[in-house]
Design a protein around this nucleic acid. Structure first.
Length: 465
RNA sequence: GGCGGCGUAGCCAAGUGGUAAGGCAGAAGUCUGCAAAACUUCUAUUCACCCGUUCGAUUCGGGUCGCCGCCUCCA
């Protein structure tokens, strides 16, 4: 049974979709004004693990992600005066975002939707809120009236009565009735792109897009809404207010929020300027698989301190798994079945499943796999691993790879004939105990990125990373 | 000021009211022409600290200290 922790109730809950076997899930996507940084990708990686795990469990999944392609920052950085300019600017970064996702083996959500393609949905939602008295118009902008929604603050656990609001009032150019009221629709400013709609000219506020689009694709009530902790307030708090006031129905069943990625013990964020992008890391030689592993290795509800050392450790850990698989694929095994290995395999699988079922405890799931690797290595070493064990081990690693896609493509790489000839020549030299020549050939191949290992089962080779 | 979270070996980190998974790094040994890999053993009598509940607490309750986040745009 999959259990997930819900931010709203703070409790671990048995997961059960609202409608049969169908899971409807919405994930807050990027604001495409710049490259996403590695902290952003921590969130997308945990969402991808959730996505993969739900599918693994046999659920039918509809996973929607938005692209915020209009907001203060996209307008500011694009310097766009018209919508077409804005679109051209944001499309570039959206493209880069999905390139980065692909590098990290983050699957594309079933639906990726742009805010600017859903202005009518947002306008319609604002109209409903105005009609029902939850929103008002002021100076051609529209605001949500928080006093009409007593539960406001429930998600972020904010108690506004005991709070000194004055301390955090921003210098907003828009006039609001209550400082806490937030913009649904912003009146056009000079030289900025805008839409001409039934509620007037202007552009949407940030929060309204997610309410409009999630409900458009997933219905007034759906199963899972995920993001990172810094979406809790105000973004998701506002989404709940808007959505529930507009429909009168409960908005989301389960709120999932990933913790931050830290750098030197501090939250990495664009506004702090202490961020690096995936491109930065790849540029200095980190492998995308090691980065993905690092981002997956700490359960999503715990802060993750990201350092170059943690990426190194991840690379070594992956290496251990791949060494095992290489042995597993290249050695030959006696006939029969080793029941102890089968048992170890079952145990590992049970622990793997139990870990992920426990609010995506990735660290626990990884531990189960490594425990098996040691047992498998021991069995291979003493020659007790049998042909009859191959199938269950393969399945275990297929399942692992389905959730943690960090292993190299298992299809064996082809050696070119020249390299094969050198290997044959070295084998001959070794038989003749001409170790000097054998070592020269080994060094020569190493220079070409081919690592040779002599094992009891014969020569084994692999490519250097 | 209010709210929330965290503090487990050199580093990363799981976990439970009954006596500490796993990974990385390190040491010794086995294997080996050497190398690599693998395996074995070792590396926290102890889970920030102090009280309390309990037969028993790292795990529950209270307090102290430290760190982080949110209350403003941010994954």
């Amino acid at each position: 049974m999959l259990k997930l922790k819900d931010t709203l109730t703070g409790k671990l809950q048995d997961f059960q979709p609202l409608e049969g076997n169908h899971v409807r899930m919405y994930a807050c996507g990027p604001t495409v004004y710049d490259f996403a940084h590695i902290g952003n990708f921590r969130t997308y990686v945990y969402e991808d693990i959730l996505r993969r795990w739900l599918k693994f469990k046999g659920y039918q999944l509809t996973h929607v992600m938005n692209i915020t392609d209009v907001d203060d920052k996209t307008i500011r950085d694009s310097k766009a005066k018209e919508l077409a300019q804005l679109r051209a600017y944001t499309e570039r970064y959206a493209r880069c975002f999905f390139e980065d996702c692909m590098a990290l083996s983050i699957e594309r959500p079933d639906k990726v939707v742009n805010a600017t393609d859903h202005i009518p949905d947002m306008v319609h939602l604002i109209q409903k809120l105005v009609e029902s008295g939850h929103a008002y118009k002021k100076d051609d902008s529209y605001y949500f009236k928080i006093s009409t929604y007593p539960k406001y603050g429930q998600l972020a656990k904010l108690d506004f009565d005991g709070m000194k609001i004055g301390a955090s009032v921003d210098i907003d150019e828009y006039e609001k009735e209550d400082v806490r009221d937030f913009a649904l629709w912003k009146a056009p400013k000079d030289e900025e792109p805008f839409w001409d709609t039934p509620i007037g000219k202007g552009r949407p506020g940030w929060h309204i897009e997610c309410s409009a689009m999630s409900m458009h694709y997933l219905g007034a009530s759906f199963d899972i809404h995920c993001g990172a902790v810094d979406n809790i307030f105000p973004h998701h708090e506002n989404e709940i207010a808007q959505s529930e006031c507009a429909t009168g129905k409960p908005f989301v069943r389960l709120w999932l929020h990933g913790e931050h990625l830290m750098v030197n013990g501090e939250k990495m964020s664009k506004s702090k300027g202490n961020f690096f992008t995936l491109r930065d890391l790849l540029g200095k030689g980190d492998s995308p698989r090691a980065i993905r592993y690092t981002l997956s290795s700490v359960p999503y509800r715990k802060p993750l301190n990201f350092t170059s050392e943690s990426v190194q450790q991840a690379q070594s850990a992956i290496g251990r798994l791949e060494e095992f698989l290489l042995r597993f694929e290249t050695d030959t095994f006696p006939e029969g079945v080793n029941e102890r290995v089968e048992e170890a395999c079952r145990t590992a699988r049970d622990k793997f499943v139990a870990g992920l079922d426990d609010d995506l405890n990735t660290a626990g799931a990884l531990g189960a796999i490594f425990e098996f690797v040691r047992q498998g290595n021991t069995a291979i070493g003493e020659g007790s691993l049998c042909q009859g064990n191959v199938a269950s081990i393969s399945t275990l690693f297929d399942d692992f790879q389905a959730i943690f896609p960090v292993l190299k493509d298992p299809t064996r790489q082809i050696l070119d004939s020249q390299i094969e000839a050198l290997i044959a020549e070295r084998n001959q030299a070794r038989r003749e105990r001409n170790f000097k020549k054998a070592d020269e050939i080994r060094d020569q191949l190493l220079a070409q990125g081919i690592i040779l290992e002599d094992t009891r089962a014969g020569l084994r080779w692999k490519r250097k990373e």
